[in-house]
Amino acid sequence: MTGHPLHRPLVVVTGKGGTGKTTVAAALGLAAARRGRAIVCEVGRQQRMPALFGRAAPELGEELEVDDQLWTVSIDPQDALEEWLSRQLPRRLVHVLARSGAFSAFVHAAPGARELVTITKAWELAEAQRWRRGARPYDVVVLDAPASGHGVGLLRTPHTFAEIARVGPIASQARRVDEALRDPAHTACVAVTLPGELPVSETLELEGHLAERLGQAFTGIVVNGVAPRRVSPADAERLAATDGDLPGAAVHAARAAAARTRVQHAQVARLRRHAHAPVHQVPFVYATELGLDDVRAIAARLERAFSHDSDERPVGQEVG
């Protein structure tokens, strides 16, 4: 389902390591915060969001406000699990379980249990009825999904657990999350990739898996780090023909840029040809370190692109 991912309460950002997934998740969080209460969730003990906003990392599991209407959290499975248990059982029994260590042992031993708790917690952040009394729900939850070889693994976990457990509170909880993840009106999936042959192939494969195993579709595919189309092959040839007159580094740079641009744009074109979802490009940022201003610029760019897809006026910016 195309349209604007930020119209859904849950936005899952997937992609392999090194694609700039966290940056895109942060940018989507910033864009979402122009619309309402938004939170960016990191997983697997990762805490890169606070640093981007010049803040010290809080405890795992603690929701930290980093910008106007924008929060961030690094989901802690143990913490989330205890919260969930406290909704299922009388306090006394939660203590029995927590103190016996049996449940946490269960979570460590059962493969996928951590993932189940993580995705369930992300889902919970947008629920009207939060687990913790008095906690306010978020309008948009952006999940920076773990970079794994099997991109849909995390999203499939609730289904797997619902199947395995069949009955009982885990099964019914897992089923609710599974339904939300499969519902295009509830969950938007955004892929982040790079303009290279391998990442493009993997993204196309992932799009297939998402449809096949979850019945979902990408709301958009973000191609990160695209080199500017500046030096044409003709320019590069002309420079090469001046042989000797120009500094070698200049010729080398022009030739490298032309070659890189050619490969990258061919891959973006291939992605556009084969992908069902709309493809949006984010230009390469030539800097040692990506700063908050760079991420805000990416946020504005994505807001424009997605608004264009859904035929609406971008939020929070002047349209020229």
Partner: peptide, 25 residues
Amino acid sequence: LAAKVVGRSTGVVFSVLRRVTGVDL
């Protein structure tokens, strides 16, 4: 071991676990 750890019958821990996870699992 759970019985020794919590100092009460495993039965309690086990039945609570069953309650949460579902019997089949």
